[in-house]
């Protein structure tokens, strides 16, 4: 009840190319009253460390974060890793000059990202028409299939199918890629025999008709 009465305060960070979010955040915090706060990070890619700094700053002003909003999954992941409640702004049009992000904005509008939290156990099957972002492992015997990309914040030990309706540009990204089988569009490949290097995120994609695995690029999650 109290929360509704006191009217949830919202801080919206400026779009990344205009100014620095830190200054804007400080300015906006000064105007807030102690209590709960909703923080919209827009298209800022904030790391775990950034959120730690934000939290200590907010603590000084007796503010608590109720919800984090962001346009990009990376920020959501760092926020949730700190146990904050986070939600992705999907429909929000992105105003960015970069051609890559414009592409994503278009893609996002047609195919929403599906979130799943928790490990997929043997026999379970997660399926979506758009992209899938999964927090947790895909155990042996479990399967994920997406019309777009498959992004796994965890270990992939089961079967993953990206671009199940024939999108050859789809890819599969996981913190640990040790699948039984990989499928991209209509291509099928058996998983690698050897264990991958510890702590090295990898991605699988189609290159000249073959599924290849290589270290994940830093923006793999973003270009989803």
């Amino acid at each position: 009840m109290q929360r509704k009465d006191s009217c949830l305060q919202t801080i919206i960070l400026p779009v990344s190319r205009h100014s620095d979010w830190r200054e804007s955040l400080k300015r906006q915090i000064n105007e807030c009253e102690p209590g709960l706060l909703e923080l919209d990070c827009r298209d800022w890619s904030l790391s775990y460390k950034d959120f730690m700094n934000i939290l200590t700053l907010l603590e000084k002003f007796h503010l608590k974060i109720n919800l984090i909003r962001a346009d990009i999954p990376e920020t959501i992941v760092s926020a949730s890793s700190l146990g904050l409640q986070a939600s992705l702004n999907i429909k929000q049009p992105q105003c960015s000059t970069s051609s890559i992000t414009e592409d994503i904005a278009k893609k996002k509008e047609s195919e929403p990202l599906t979130f799943h939290q928790g490990t997929l156990r043997s026999g379970e099957h997660l399926e979506a028409d758009g992209d899938i972002l999964l927090f947790g492992d895909v155990n042996p015997g479990a399967k994920v299939s997406a019309g777009g990309d498959v992004l796994i914040w965890g270990r992939l030990l089961g079967i993953a199918h990206a671009g199940k309706r024939g999108d050859i540009n789809s890819k599969i990204v996981a913190l640990q890629l040790r699948p039984l089988q990989l499928r991209i569009a209509n291509k099928v490949a058996r998983g690698p025999q050897e264990k991958p290097e510890e702590g090295l995120a990898e991605e699988a994609l189609l290159e000249s008709g073959q599924i290849i695995i290589k270290p994940a690029r830093i923006n793999s999650l973003r270009t989803a």
Partner: peptide, 12 residues
């Protein structure tokens, strides 16, 4: 282990 994993999913 595989079967146990399946059962754990169902128990959940």
């Amino acid at each position: 282990v595989r079967d146990a994993d399946r059962v754990i999913g169902l128990l959940n």
